[in-house]
Measured scan of single mutants.
Amino acid sequence: GGHPVTTQMVETVQNLAPNLHPEQIRYSLENTGSVEETVERYLRGDEFSFPP
């Protein structure tokens, strides 16, 4: 991942996926670069990993 992630982006995802840890959200956003894509992954039931 190398996309810039803002606190705003993390908070937006958190509102839609409250049971995800912020670190999981941030890591996913760094890989996708997209709030929409991260939320899609969540709704699909994809696994969210923590940063290594």
Rank of each mutant, 00 (worst) to 15 (best):
A17G: 02
Q8G: 10
F50S: 04
T6F: 07
E11C: 09
R26L: 09
P4L: 14
T6W: 07
V5I: 12
P4I: 15
T6A: 06
E37P: 00
R26Y: 10
H3G: 10
T32M: 03
E11G: 07
T32I: 02
G33W: 06
N31R: 10
R41N: 09
E40T: 12
I25C: 03
G2M: 15
E36Y: 10
G33C: 07
V39M: 14
G2Y: 13
E37W: 05
D46Y: 10
P22Q: 09
L43H: 10
L16A: 10
P51C: 03
F50M: 08
L43K: 10
Q14E: 05
V10F: 09
S49M: 15
L29C: 03
H21E: 08
D46T: 06
E37C: 08
Q24F: 01
E23K: 05
F48S: 02
Q14W: 10
A17R: 01
N15L: 15
V35S: 02
V10H: 03
M9Y: 02
E23T: 08
N31C: 12
L20F: 03
P4W: 15
G33A: 06
G45K: 03
E11A: 12
L43I: 10
L43W: 10
Y27C: 04
L20V: 02
I25S: 00
N31Q: 15
T12E: 14
Q8P: 06
S28I: 04
R41P: 03
Q24L: 04
N15D: 10
E40P: 00
E30M: 13
P22H: 09
L43D: 06
Q14N: 07
T32P: 01
G45M: 03
H3C: 09
G33L: 08
E23Y: 07
R41G: 08
V13C: 06
L43S: 07
I25L: 00
P22T: 09
G45L: 01
N15Y: 13
E40Y: 12
D46I: 06
H3S: 10
Y42M: 01
S34H: 03
G33H: 08
S49K: 15
F48L: 07
P22S: 09
V39W: 09
D46E: 15
E40K: 14
T7E: 14
N19P: 05
L16Y: 12
H3Q: 10
Q14M: 14
Y42L: 06
M9K: 04
P52M: 09
E40M: 14
E11D: 11
H3I: 10
P22W: 12
S28A: 10
Q24P: 02
G2L: 14
T12I: 14
R44F: 05
L20T: 01
D46N: 07
T32R: 00
A17V: 09
Q24Y: 01
V35W: 08
P52R: 05
N15Q: 15
Q24N: 01
G2K: 15
F50P: 03
L29M: 01
N19V: 07
T6Q: 05
N31F: 15
L20A: 02
E36H: 11
P4M: 14
D46F: 11
G33N: 07
E37G: 08
G1V: 13
P18I: 08
T12M: 15
I25T: 00
P18N: 05
T12L: 15
T38P: 00
F50Q: 03
S49A: 15
T32C: 04
E40L: 14
L16S: 08
V13P: 01
V39I: 15
L29Y: 02
L20G: 01
E36N: 10
A17C: 15
S28N: 05
D46Q: 09
R44I: 05
T38G: 00
S28K: 01
V13H: 02
S34N: 08
G2D: 11
D46M: 10
R44S: 08
P4K: 15
T12F: 15
G45Y: 00
Q8H: 12
P51S: 05
V10Y: 06
G2A: 14
V35K: 00
V35M: 09
Y27E: 07
E47C: 09
R44P: 01
L29F: 01
F48C: 02
V39P: 02
Y27R: 02
R44N: 12
E30R: 06
H21C: 09
R26I: 12
N15F: 13
R26K: 12
I25K: 00
P52E: 09
T32W: 06
Q14T: 07
Q24A: 05
Q14F: 08
E37T: 08
R41T: 06
S34F: 03
D46C: 10
E40W: 10
